[in-house]
């Protein structure tokens, strides 16, 4: 057999590690470029995954095992700085001055978390007791009890859905898809930890799209007494004692509502990563109006970019759950395999 064909994966999160492992297993010469000091992506910061409640670390470990078993080359703390297009091949230059030739490239640069300070009226980074779902997840992972800034047990907690999603004021028209169920998951976790606390979810629409998700929603209502209020938060204000006054309309009863809460959790959405935008520029790829990378065909070729030989895996193409990201990465591996076989 001739020399194995070379594949470069850019971005070593869930999608990047999975696609790299699979391609290495199929015998390709894979190099994974990761900008952080370790692979695994945002999964490393998550505590438990919906819908099963399995520790995220287990999934991360599974992925890491595969990486080790297939021993492909991983370059961390490195960015891609330049790309030269050859005839059906690529030359990728890194910030570490390496020049890597490739027959195919996988972009798996993922998403960024919406910067909640951009919705100043919600008071994130202004008021100490306003946190994001990511902050909460990190705290849950660290195993620390969830308290207010002053160290007290929160008696009333409000989850705010659609922060930075479906919000044209922030330039994000899209639904981030995973926040609704994340909210239900986190609210349930808090209810378990703080059985005395009253927990409210303020939503515009609840999108429980996955098969088991509706049951999670039902359980949250039935078992954990979590209350769902259909109304979007307009603003938060701080009381003298550090509690928060939040305002929304209870749209179903058609009346304005205000509520004093101890903790506000903003369910921040997914936005196209800065790195994803950078890759789109380097590889001259088409992007969707919402900034995510455009696939060649939204039904049939969801792993192909607008440029031949450049493949897409994971949330650089749009919001996905961890499970969907894995599926997308696996289909990418197969698509690349076909492409390289027939090349």
């Amino acid at each position: 057999m001739s020399k194995p064909k070379k594949v470069i994966t850019i971005g070593g999160g869930v999608a990047g590690t999975e696609v790299s492992s699979l391609l290495a297993e199929l015998g390709y010469d894979v190099t994974l470029i990761e900008k952080n000091s370790q692979t695994g992506g945002k999964l490393n910061g998550w505590s438990h995954l919906f819908p099963t409640g399995r520790p995220a670390a287990q999934v991360a470990e599974f992925l890491q095992h595969k990486v080790q078993r297939n021993s492909f080359k991983t370059i961390c703390q490195t960015d891609v700085s330049q790309v030269v297009f050859g005839n059906g091949s690529f030359l990728v230059k890194t910030s570490g001055d390496e020049r890597l030739p490739a027959d195919a490239v996988v972009i798996s640069t993922g998403f960024d978390i919406f910067d909640a300070t951009r919705k100043e009226e919600y008071g994130y980074s202004v008021y100490e007791n306003v946190i994001t779902s990511v902050d909460l997840e990190n705290r849950l992972k660290a195993g620390a009890p969830i308290t207010t800034a002053a160290g007290n047990k929160p008696c009333r907690i409000a989850f705010i859905h659609c922060v930075g999603s479906r919000d044209e004021k922030c330039g994000n028209h899209h639904c981030s898809k995973v926040c609704c169920v994340t909210g239900v998951k986190q609210a349930t976790e808090l209810a378990k930890q703080l059985p005395q606390a009253e927990i409210f979810c303020f939503y515009m629409d609840l999108r429980m799209f996955g098969l088991p998700y509706e049951s999670m929603y039902r359980e949250a209502q039935e078992k954990y007494n979590i209350q769902f209020i259909r109304g979007r938060l307009s603003e938060a204000a701080e009381n003298a004692d550090g509690t928060l006054q939040i305002k929304a309309e209870d749209t179903l009863s058609g009346r304005p509502l205000k509520m004093q809460v101890d903790l506000v959790v903003l369910l921040v959405g997914m936005v196209p990563g800065k790195n994803t935008a950078h890759m789109a520029d380097l590889f001259e790829l088409q992007r969707e109006p919402n900034g995510f990378l455009q696939t060649e065909d939204p039904h049939l070729f969801k792993n192909r970019s607008s440029r031949k030989g450049v493949f897409l895996a994971g949330t650089c193409t749009g919001p996905m759950t961890v499970d969907e990201t894995l599926d997308h990465a696996r289909s990418a591996a197969l698509d690349i395999h076909h492409y390289l076989q027939n090349k």
């Binding site: 479906r166 259909r230 979007r232 938060l233 307009s234 929304a248 309309e249 209870d250």
Partner: peptide, 9 residues
Amino acid sequence: LSCGGCTAT
């Protein structure tokens, strides 16, 4: 989309 933000604020 009838989110009620306007009424709340």
